[in-house]
Design a binder for these strands. Structure first.
Lengths: 187, 187
DNA sequence: AGCATCTCGCAGTGATCGTTGCGTTAGTAG
DNA sequence: CTACTAACGCAACGATCACTGCGAGATGCT
């Protein structure tokens, strides 16, 4: 597991060779996950990315670590936290955005693959969303208003969204996601 | 994929050889899943079960199908549907039983592995629980009382339980599960 | 008991995986 | 411009995997 590559030089420049290889490997993983047919193994990933398997083995070591790296890149800074001044509207936009995000088959395949690696790295799929949810609640509290506790909001919003996406065959819709907010916030 | 083995004879007797092999393989899968270290592959499973890999290949074909078979056996008829006459108490017992079930590391590993196979077979981990939940709601309706719709109950009970078990590192507790019921049913 | 049928064990095969040593190339510092 | 470091390509190696005929043993029916 090498979350921070040991080279501060070659990796720092966004257009360096290491960065290009990294991007190619990440894209290869996403493509193979959406294909759903090919087996997700390091030689296959390397061939798809146009690099040698040795490189992937040395940089990431295992498919699990590589998946975790792809997931952290994928689930970071992709949804902007809404700030409309109204908690209800913030949560509705947040929930519908997350529903749209999780209804993407590629994203869903990534989440399922990460969960399948078994470790605690399944948290990277939701850690960012959790922080965003907490941020919205805290902002409402800073405005002097009462909010449900974070745990309750997680159970009412994140849990149904992820549960429906991962365990059922019906993709979450933005409309349904908004009903979750109406159940969380009393009228 | 062979959910129904083609032999009605040898499989029908519970003490037959096929049944013994099947039980040994199932137990081997569960043990390897809880070990978490060994790789979950067919030769390893077969060696652990004391059978030849050929047998496993022929009967199940792939690790995914074998996992689905283990899961259907595991998640069938393990929780008895409560019937106390009170919907609230039924749901509280059901939720706390499910929380206790999902807090078992072995069960959790099985769920995560099934999800990792990517297919729609992740549904087998919750299909039985869904039916049990529907049964309790329908029984309450047959008593002439109003109940939340099934979808709402799923979002409020099953989703948080599975979400917390799979995506977080905090195991669901029976006490917390009961609070989910209190949020679903208004006072 | 005899027979048919199914399942399992056995050994072998091709393919792929994970890993390592070495030379080359790209990128950076002085 | 030169030198140094790090990342990559290349080619091997052993190990394991998925799979396939074939024979033996078990099971159930007559």
């Amino acid at each position: 597991m090498r979350p921070a590559p040991s080279s501060p030089r070659a990796e720092s420049r966004p257009g360096g060779r290491s960065a290009r290889v990294r991007a190619a490997v990440h894209q290869a993983v996403r493509e193979l996950l959406s294909d759903e047919a090919d087996e997700l193994t390091i030689p296959v990933i390397a061939a798809r990315a146009g690099v040698h398997a040795t490189t992937v083995y040395r940089r990431w070591g295992s498919v699990g670590d590589l998946l975790a790296d792809v997931a952290t890149s994928r689930f970071s800074g992709d949804i902007v936290v809404p700030d409309t001044g109204s908690l209800r509207e913030d949560l509705e936009r947040f929930a519908s955005d997350l529903a749209r995000d999780l209804s993407d088959p590629d994203t869903l395949s990534l989440v399922r693959a990460i969960v399948g690696t078994g470790g605690e790295n399944a948290g990277v799929c939701r850690a960012e969303r959790q922080r965003q949810l907490e941020a919205m609640l805290e902002r409402e509290q800073a405005r002097g208003n009462e909010t449900p506790p974070v745990e309750r909001a997680t159970d009412a919003l994140l849990a149904p969204l992820y549960y429906r996406a991962v365990f059922t065959d019906q993709a979450p819709t933005p409309e349904w996601a908004r009903t979750l907010v109406s159940h969380l916030l009393p009228d």
